[in-house]
Computed example of a mutant assay.
Amino acid sequence: MIIVKQTPIRIVSLVPSQTELLYDLGLEDNIVGITKFCVHPIHFKNTKKSVGGTKQIKIEKIKALKPDIILCNKEENTKEIVEACSEICKVHVSELYTLEDTIALVKEYGVLFNKRTEALKISVKIEYNLNEFKEFIKDKPVLKVAYFIWREPWMVAANNTFINHLLELNNFKNIYANLERYPEVEINKLQQQGDPDLVLLSSEPYPFKDEHAFELGRFSHHSKTVFVDGEYFSWYGSRLIGAFDYFRTLRNRL
């Protein structure tokens, strides 16, 4: 928790999922700058100032917006970005790996931006939907999975990631959980490395297509390839309210 003398009014968000959370907290009018990847809510594309991407920002544009606070994330933004932003104003850097971390961030934003009631409503909804999903999933069989996020080189989500945490919640055993973060893998060794029941192709950040599914299929013994909504597996914040319904639907169609 960072300490501020008064509630920040002008906010720049460099994290797409946190931009959506700010909107759902009722802070639309306070958001003055976002990244080009902040696609929710959709109208922000036309109403908010873009200050670059999550890894490459336009620092002069941020300065011109005269923010009171800049919101970053340890995974989304680089150390250099955080340091550059710190010369402009207060910077809040989130670090999230679990649902508990996410709920804590929602509540922290509630205090920081004087939106405690709204934050409580969001956190309660997430916790309620999570508990319902746990009841649904507890008797479902464990399935071995590989969760791909990139091609050329092929990259997967491994241990110590929010994605892996949600895979575990879904009773999915990540065959790459012995590795860290987002490693490059050799798809011709897919069988030897775990021979998954499911190959999950995320909708982001790479735009996987049918031909990529066929390409992976050549190297697996019996796995089923499924395109999944990457936002529900990797976005924290208020997006999680709807994530558990999505996970339930996904399980039911496997």
Rank of each mutant, 00 (worst) to 15 (best):
F227V: 09
G230V: 03
I122W: 01
E76D: 14
R239D: 00
E184I: 10
L143T: 00
S17D: 10
D245M: 01
S223G: 14
V15D: 06
N164V: 05
K55P: 01
N131Y: 04
L179M: 15
C89W: 05
C85Q: 03
C85H: 03
N77I: 08
L105I: 04
N174L: 06
V199A: 06
L120Y: 13
V91N: 00
P16Y: 00
N73W: 02
I149F: 03
T54K: 05
I62D: 00
Y246G: 11
E100C: 06
C72S: 12
P16M: 01
S123D: 13
I11M: 12
N160G: 01
I2Y: 14
S202M: 11
K107D: 11
Y97P: 00
W150G: 07
F136D: 13
T225E: 08
K140N: 11
L240M: 13
I149H: 07
M1S: 14
R251S: 03
Y232I: 01
S94I: 03
V226E: 07
A64V: 01
L112P: 04
Q191K: 15
P67M: 00
G217T: 10
R151C: 13
G237A: 07
S123H: 06
E127C: 06
I42G: 08
I70K: 04
D197L: 01
V199M: 10
V145G: 02
S50H: 14
F44N: 04
V185I: 15
Y182L: 07
I11W: 08
I241E: 06
V15E: 02
L112R: 04
T117V: 11
F44D: 02
I88R: 07
I88G: 08
N77G: 13
L65I: 12
A119H: 05
R239G: 04
H212E: 10
H43G: 04
T7D: 02
I81H: 07
Y246R: 11
I149P: 06
E204L: 08
F233H: 00
I34D: 01
T7I: 14
L254T: 08
L179F: 13
D197V: 04
L198C: 09
R218N: 10
E100K: 15
